[in-house]
Design a binder for these strands. Structure first.
Ligand SMILES: [Mn+2]
Ligand SMILES: [Mn+2]
Ligand SMILES: [Zn+2]
Ligand SMILES: [Zn+2]
Lengths: 139, 139
DNA sequence: GTCTAACTTTAGACATATTCTAATTAGTAA
DNA sequence: TTACTAATTAGAATATGTCTAAAGTTAGAC
């Protein structure tokens, strides 16, 4: 059993999720691959090799993984939902021209920023979405 | 002709968009309701009274309005796309429990925040998405 | 006002994305 | 192993969004 699989297994047990072959395959794909995959891309990727996973199971697995913080859906505009392994927090950049969705390294909001605007809510996290022209389109 | 309609008309002309009854209806609905409406909600709302607008026209109008900055699609997770009048900038809050999407008053990132992370891109704007438990679910 | 060209709307077909269902399979603990 | 429950499956059903070709509307020239 691979090192990755053992660590995923531990993550599943910690999270109280039954470790199934399909969940392994989905999470492993997200953990290994470039980010922001659609459910359809994941479906095809995990079915290149056994075991197979149905479309419904890809969606179910993504929801289960997201529920325990092992994956997350990325807020985006239009088209299919996109997912990534929920490893390190980071921000996002959305190109107006080509629509690409890129990661931006994490940085904290300075302490207290905007605190006055958030009364009554329990904030568990945040993310900044930048918009503009990506380096490629800028050339 | 109402004051609102005149100001929308001026906005259309400035933007170089032909003012049509359907675009008026869509933008007026968004401007009057402080919500994050789906295309389906807008479709029903503008068809309560004449003139009617087809589904395709609701989508076309939203795209046209968004293209000139009079409306915008809100980045969100799952389900149908949501739109709002593109008036003042603001941030958003997403409740983990009930899924509600709320406005958060605008505040600027302190100058230079994260600048080092964004090299090569032309930033035209940004938005912060907070997550957690809303005031209602918190009780 | 009349004309024309370009733009817009329409209904519904089409395409894509996601959820649901009922039967089957697989994980867990005793 | 056995019993119990959770998870998976294929495909149907639903939800969301785009496209098409014909008909209607707008803007600007005359
Ligand atoms: Mn990302
Ligand atoms: Mn908003
Ligand atoms: Zn780009
Ligand atoms: Zn809530």
């Amino acid at each position: 059993m691979s090192v990755l699989r053992e660590s995923l297994d531990a993550a599943f047990r910690t999270a109280g999720l039954r470790p199934t072959a399909q969940r392994y395959a989905v999470l492993e794909f997200l953990a290994r691959r470039p980010r922001h995959a659609t459910a359809e891309e994941i479906f095809h990727a995990v079915n290149r090799a056994d075991p197979r996973a149905s479309r419904a199971t890809v969606y179910n697995s993504l929801r289960a993984l997201a529920g325990v913080g092992l994956a997350r859906e990325v807020a985006s505009e239009g088209g299919a939902a996109r997912f990534e392994a929920g490893l390190q927090p980071h921000h996002h950049f959305l190109c107006d021209q080509c629509g690409s969705l890129e990661d931006v390294p994490w940085f904290e909001l300075p302490a207290g920023t905007g605190a006055a605007s958030l009364g009554g809510r329990a904030i568990r996290g945040y993310e900044i979405v930048f918009r503009g022209t990506c380096a490629n389109c800028e050339k």
